[in-house]
Design a protein around this nucleic acid. Structure first.
Length: 661
DNA sequence: GACGCGCGCCC
DNA sequence: GTACGGGCGCGCGTCC
């Protein structure tokens, strides 16, 4: 085979559609990874391989700005990000950018794999052996490489022949896939694909913008949490050590108890203190295997641990969990309770484990990343450190169409504990949080065309539901009753059965039997009969045609045995596509007007913006206009606004009317 | 080192 | 007799 390196003459491509694949030294440009080569295949059969040189880069840049071309990538966000770091203005390219990964996801949302290898097998019956070679090389040369260069090998270290084979195969496969998938998408869900295609830029821009972190604050909170966890560790050691652990090989006596070891240390500690174990773990759904796995071990989750304590203590533990007590309060209260009621010291074990777990989780999952993953760290004259955190947002990961976030995951920052204190707006700006009001519930009402639900949603659905369930006027409904009705609202729309609902309600502190749960469910369906009808209608549709389609044209090929998921997918997916469309509208509107307002995050039904003071009046009403939809659904889809001047944790309600004077 | 598992945070 | 939606990621322990 002949390869061209284009040392002198650069090609003038005739093909209108050109698939590209770039290869880089790694995945993370923020920590130095860079493109080093690429390959292309065009619809006129032209193809080639190029190293990254300044002239080749200039050629590529020109091509990307040729408005007669369609440029196809597989996972364009990645390639564009890499090209951004080569100085290319990827947000204003004149060519049309396409993405076969996005196409694949749009066509079959439920399919788990969208990489080239799988798609090649599925749509092209392609040979994938070329692709595996380089990965095999990396694996088998890792050890020697680390020894010699003190780092792992990356793609750029592989033999040139393998690199070329791989990158050309990727580009060629991308082109073939595009010619297969694009016509399908155009026919089936053109609008949806167009939204997702534009969303690539929105998403990349969010990632590149990043969010500002008060690193000093994170360090301080991390220090506090780890000191507290050490204090608990000490007390736990006194309580249970020395501890004898049983292993296959034999016994081991330890002086340092590890509360994060649910298989070894925890059973040993409970046994030593004379608490007989009662609860076992249940099999859990495994995403990879698609079935339930595990289960059967002793369980030490929060609910089990609380049940190992007697009433006065367990009530306190529930309360603390609900209200997120600080360390000192928690620590004092549990010791006071144990003294006051003369409970055996061993009851401290579950309580201390719970707090220890919370603290170590805060440190390892949250604070550590807020501190270590920041870039562009600056230190003020006063000695405070600030940095920017660039997480990843993935528009094509969740089966329903939702976004996911990773490295670190900004979508699961605890709402009541410290981490949100570390998120701050840039100078001269505030954080604005705009969230849809009970959006999924509204889509349930929409799909069910349930008048009663629709009327109640804008006021207080849970309260009304509770009122009807407990046969009391709404104003007499207690907080607990309203919460329970809320749980039931959610459980029913998740398609849950009596067993799970009983478990959920019990976990939340209101012990419920299965038969009671069944009564709740039946009662619920007698209040809102159209929900069950709609679920059945969707299951039927699924059985007949093999898929269901949401209002944005996203199809869900749900296996029939999971048809109970249909209604939930429809509601979750519709709200996901609604917010995606709003994001695109907003981002392009902001860009056209060269505004400095930034979209920072998307958290399922909420968008987080950073708005300069001077743009508030102009931008806020427009954002709301893009997000809300008061006409196209059975229930108006509306938003609420919160603003955080200093820290995410200090957000407060905001009324748009207060903006108009 | 990869993977399964238990656990827990978010909407 | 079955069945609670969608995510990410940690530490531990086992197996290769």
């Amino acid at each position: 085979m002949q390869y061209t390196d284009y040392k002198n003459a650069l090609p003038n491509l005739k093909g209108k559609i050109i698939a590209f694949d770039t290869e880089a030294t790694g995945l993370d440009p923020w920590h130095g990874d860079r493109v080093f080569c690429w390959a292309y295949y065009s619809s006129k059969g032209e193809w080639g391989f190029m190293w990254k040189t300044s002239s080749n880069l200039a050629w590529l840049k020109n091509l990307l700005n040729d408005d007669s071309k369609h440029i196809v990538f597989h996972n364009a966000k990645y390639d564009l990000q890499m090209l951004y770091f080569e100085g290319i203005d990827v947000f204003n390219l004149k060519s049309d950018i396409h993405d076969t990964m996005v196409l694949s996801k749009v066509l079959d949302s439920v399919e788990k794999f969208h990489n080239l290898r799988h798609l090649s097998r599925r749509y092209l019956r392609g040979d994938t052996s070329d692709k595996d070679e380089i990965e095999y090389w990396l694996k088998s040369n890792k050890r020697a490489f680390v020894k010699q260069y003190n780092r792992s090998p990356n793609f750029s270290d592989a033999p040139i022949k393998l690199i070329k084979k791989r990158v050309l195969w990727d580009a060629q496969t991308t082109l073939k896939l595009f010619s297969k998938l694009y016509p399908l998408a155009k026919k089936r869900c053109r609008e949806l694909y167009e939204t997702e295609r534009k969303l690539i830029l929105v998403c990349l821009h969010m990632e590149l913008s990043g969010v500002t972190i008060d690193i000093s604050k994170a360090k301080q909170l991390k220090e506090e949490a780890s000191n507290h966890s050490k204090q608990i560790q000490k007390e736990l050691n006194q309580l249970v050590c020395p501890l004898t652990l049983q292993y296959n090989k034999g016994k081991e006596v330890i002086k340092q108890f590890n509360p994060n070891s649910p298989l070894k240390h925890l059973p040993a500690a409970f046994e030593k203190l004379g608490i007989s174990l009662r609860y076992r773990t249940k099999p859990k759904k495994n995403k990879k295997k698609g079935r339930k796995t595990g289960g059967g071990n002793w369980s030490f989750d929060e609910y089990s641990l609380i049940r190992y304590t007697s009433k006065p203590l367990s009530e306190v533990l529930y309360q603390s969990s609900k209200e997120n007590w600080g360390f000192d309060k928690f620590y004092n209260v549990i010791h006071n309770i144990v003294d006051k009621y003369k409970l055996p010291k061993s009851e401290l074990l579950p309580a201390l484990i719970l707090k220890h777990r919370e603290l170590t989780k805060l440190v390892s999952t949250y604070y550590a990343h807020l501190i270590e993953d920041c870039v562009d760290v600056v230190t003020t004259p006063a000695g405070r450190e600030f940095g920017v955190l660039h997480c990843k947002f993935n528009q094509s990961e969740a089966v329903t169409g939702r976004f996911s976030s990773s490295k670190p995951n900004l979508q699961n920052m605890p709402r009541l504990l410290g981490p949100r204190e570390c998120f701050i707006p840039r100078k001269g700006r505030k954080l604005w949080l705009i969230d849809y009001a009970q959006v999924e519930m509204r889509f349930y009402a929409h799909f069910a065309k349930d008048k009663k639900m629709a009327e109640r949603l804008p006021s207080d659905l849970h309260r009304w539901t509770a009122s009807e369930m407990y046969k009391k006027p709404p104003e007499q409904i207690t907080k607990e009753e309203r919460e329970r009705a809320g749980s039931i609202n959610f459980a029913v729309i998740y398609g849950s059965g009596a067993a799970t609902m009983a478990e959920t309600l019990s976990r939340k502190g209101s012990p419920t039997t299965q038969s009671k749960a069944l009564q709740f469910i039946n009662k619920y369906h007698s209040i809102y009969p159209s929900v069950r009808k709609t679920a059945r209608k969707l299951s039927h549709q699924l059985a007949v045609q093999g898929y269901i389609t949401n209002p944005f044209g996203r199809r869900y090929y749900i296996p029939n045995k999971f048809s109970y998921k249909a209604l939930n997918y429809m509601c979750q997916g519709t709200s996901a596509d609604l917010i995606k469309k709003a994001m695109v509208g907003i981002w392009f509107w902001l860009r056209e007007r060269c505004l400095r307002t930034k979209l920072l995050m998307t958290i399922h039904d909420e968008l987080v913006f950073e708005i300069p003071y001077s743009e508030e009046k102009l931008v806020l009403p427009k954002l709301i206009q893009f997000m809300e939809d008061r006409t196209n659904y059975f229930v108006p889809i509306t938003v609420g606004i919160d603003v955080a001047k200093k820290r995410w944790s200090q957000k407060e309600k905001f009324e748009l009317t207060s903006l108009v004077h």
